Deep mutational scan, measured.
Amino acid sequence: KVTYHVPNEEFARKLYKKAVDANLNVEIRVENGQFIIHIE
Rank of each mutant, 00 (worst) to 15 (best):
K1T: 09
K1V: 09
K1E: 07
K1C: 15
K1P: 08
K1F: 11
K1M: 07
V2S: 08
V2P: 08
V2N: 06
T3R: 07
T3Y: 07
T3K: 09
T3W: 09
T3V: 12
T3M: 07
Y4L: 14
Y4V: 13
Y4S: 04
H5P: 07
H5M: 13
H5L: 12
H5E: 08
H5R: 09
V6D: 10
V6G: 13
P7A: 14
P7Q: 13
P7E: 14
N8S: 10
N8A: 04
N8T: 09
E9R: 02
E9Q: 05
E9W: 13
E9F: 11
E9P: 04
E10F: 04
E10Q: 05
E10A: 07
E10V: 03
F11Q: 13
F11H: 08
F11V: 13
A12Q: 04
A12L: 13
A12K: 02
R13C: 15
R13T: 04
R13K: 12
R13I: 08
K14M: 11
K14A: 12
K14D: 12
K14P: 03
K14G: 03
K14F: 08
K14Q: 11
L15Y: 03
L15V: 07
L15R: 01
L15W: 04
Y16H: 06
Y16E: 06
Y16S: 03
Y16M: 08
Y16F: 08
K17P: 08
K17Q: 13
K17T: 04
K17R: 07
K18C: 15
K18V: 09
K18W: 15
K18S: 11
A19W: 10
A19T: 02
A19L: 15
A19H: 04
A19N: 02
A19M: 13
A19R: 02
A19D: 02
V20N: 02
V20A: 05
V20M: 11
V20R: 10
V20I: 12
D21P: 06
D21W: 07
D21A: 10
D21E: 13
A22E: 05
A22G: 07
N23P: 01
N23T: 08
N23K: 10
N23L: 14
L24H: 02
L24K: 03
N25A: 09
N25D: 08
N25Q: 12
N25P: 04
V26G: 01
E27K: 08
E27W: 12
E27M: 07
I28Y: 03
I28W: 05
I28G: 00
R29S: 10
R29Q: 07
R29C: 11
R29K: 06
V30P: 01
E31P: 01
E31V: 11
E31K: 05
E31Q: 07
E31T: 07
N32P: 01
N32L: 05
N32S: 05
N32K: 04
G33V: 10
G33P: 01
G33C: 09
G33D: 03
G33R: 01
G33I: 09
Q34E: 10
F35W: 15
F35H: 01
F35M: 04
F35D: 00
F35Y: 10
I36Y: 08
I36L: 04
I36M: 04
I37C: 01
I37A: 01
H38Y: 14
H38T: 15
I39H: 01
I39G: 00
I39L: 03
E40G: 09
E40D: 10
E40W: 15
